[in-house]
Design a binder for these strands. Sequence first.
DNA 1: ATTGGCACTCAGTGTAATGGAGTGCTAATT
DNA 2: AATTAGCACTCCATTACACTGAGTGCCAAT
Lengths: 355, 355
Amino acid sequence: MLYYEVYVRKGTRNLNERSLQLLKTLVERYISDGQPVGSRVLSTDSALNLSPATIRNVMADLEELGLIHSPHTSAGRVPTVSGYRLFVDSLLTVKPLDTKEVARLYHGLSENEDAGTMIGVASRLIADLTKMAGVVTLPRKELVCLRHIEFLPLSHKRVLVIFVTNEQEVHNKVIHTDKVFDASELQQAGAYLNSIYCGHSLTAVRAAVLKELQTDQERMNQAMLDAIKMAQLTFESGDEKDDYVLAGETNLMGFSELSDRNHLKKLFEAFSQKQDVIHLLDQSMKAEGVQIFIGEESGYQAFDHCSLVTSSYSVNDEVVGVLGVIGPTRMAYEKIIPFIDVTAKLLGAALNPKT
Amino acid sequence: MLYYEVYVRKGTRNLNERSLQLLKTLVERYISDGQPVGSRVLSTDSALNLSPATIRNVMADLEELGLIHSPHTSAGRVPTVSGYRLFVDSLLTVKPLDTKEVARLYHGLSENEDAGTMIGVASRLIADLTKMAGVVTLPRKELVCLRHIEFLPLSHKRVLVIFVTNEQEVHNKVIHTDKVFDASELQQAGAYLNSIYCGHSLTAVRAAVLKELQTDQERMNQAMLDAIKMAQLTFESGDEKDDYVLAGETNLMGFSELSDRNHLKKLFEAFSQKQDVIHLLDQSMKAEGVQIFIGEESGYQAFDHCSLVTSSYSVNDEVVGVLGVIGPTRMAYEKIIPFIDVTAKLLGAALNPKT
DNA sequence: ATTGGCACTCAGTGTAATGGAGTGCTAATT
DNA sequence: AATTAGCACTCCATTACACTGAGTGCCAAT
């Protein structure tokens, strides 16, 4: 809608209903065939009953607007990034999901395993069902609740913290304290913290700890104060390196459009460096619902010929992570979009601690 | 030596000193150039002062013995797997290591981080310095010592075990008990086990636990028995999924001999399935020192065009893991072999808890 | 506004010619 | 008996060329 008006104003020739219709069938055809599509096939494919010549005129307009592009003179047309964009934003008619696929998703994501396993399963399912690469971020730690915490002494004023969240997710971290503690002191500290913070969410714990440190500390004894300080070090923000689970990367090697050795190398390097992927996924975390990055839109060279369809997933109405699929720009958006949508919802539901 | 005699007996023509010398220069030349090498270059390359014609005769013999092979009539010769094998076993003259490389290794592996980090560093170093893929298995758990153990209750007779080994390596596992324990019972059990097994190696703990269970149990009270049973469940063998850290996989995409899309896909699938790689690495764990798998020798299709040079690494004279490099069959063995050898030694030393 | 007609472009394919690298074999040489 | 020169031969790689077919742009007719 938006695009429609913009283009009408901009071009002398119209980007009217008919051109949009043609663009739509062109993109659909290209997605299913992978071949540049010419005026003849478009003439028979579209229900518009127009002659190839007419269609050629329209195509010339579309090309001028940068929506399609011709690899060479005597080839058909191929959608550009803007063409795809317009297509997915305003033209696309989503297909209902294959019931078998939904069944597999539902089945795979209904068993109540621990979060880590579920994430892995989800990633694998996405990869297997789409034949592309699946990616799922680990749920944000803030929203989980503290179950148990404990400290062990290391050398040089360092302390190993082990804490368990939710049912059975174990984390550990080394903190640097400003004095040396012995094992029993640390045990006491752990017991104290367990007694007051067990069952609270990490966000709540962090807030409570800060508050304790800021208010008058005189009613606490030294041991309590030490414990609180260590909790502060443990849960101070920042360091939680976001991470994701990738599956089916090798599926991407099958696509001819990604077969270029250099592109493939860049892509896989991005996968193992993780950084760029995390950035990209972080962006989609901000918005709710399905997000799409087409080709160069992502801003990362490694993804130049790829599209990324993502959706955030939520537990208890709070966004805790993102999941998505990575594939060639030429992918079946009309199927992938609803697919990612329901996968995100199912994963969110599966992660919800039983009521 | 062995090969020499076998072949002399087998062929009518000799596989004498001279042929071996020629095979050696042929392999060296092919490794450095990547082109099939013909009689002319071999004539000038080898110090033997023979005419191309003579060399052609020798080459025909070598081909008959299956040591070299001609891609087509008018191309030069290329070593076969057996050719490479003979080369690395008996002909190869190892090159002294580049001092800069040793320095980088030494520097990278001398900082005393925790085991996990060191493994990662080692893998990365191998990949960076060889421009191929580095792989390092995690050290076997048996040889580490128990520092702390603790149990937390879960639902349905399940118990979450958290145990720390060495300084600060945290592991966790869910075990299924045959009755329900509450938190304080579990805490007692943990305290008891800590008091008697702390500081012992996992192998020792396992043995001790088994012994306790087999001997007369009447002098123990129920709580102690429960604790021992849980320790047994925790440390029973088997489930420790071996794992490895891979680095620089993407380096492999640069090699033309591995550029075939299908091969590459198989290879990367093997990397992410892990299973085959683990098997292969396990084999090299049994032998001490450097081991080499050339091409199809490995027995896994995925590695058909790859070679794997590995070495086990030891802590306190006990083999605890394997490390290696994966690259195309055509790699500079004379440099890689000593390189892997010293890397394994340096890693072993770095993992040795300070004396 | 749409369409038929036409000249034009260009990737892709098949065929043929050519050059060059390397071989195997034989006869001559040492 | 071992080595070498010579020669015919094979096969890959490259180039050139022609030809086809899909598709285009444009113009004039509808």
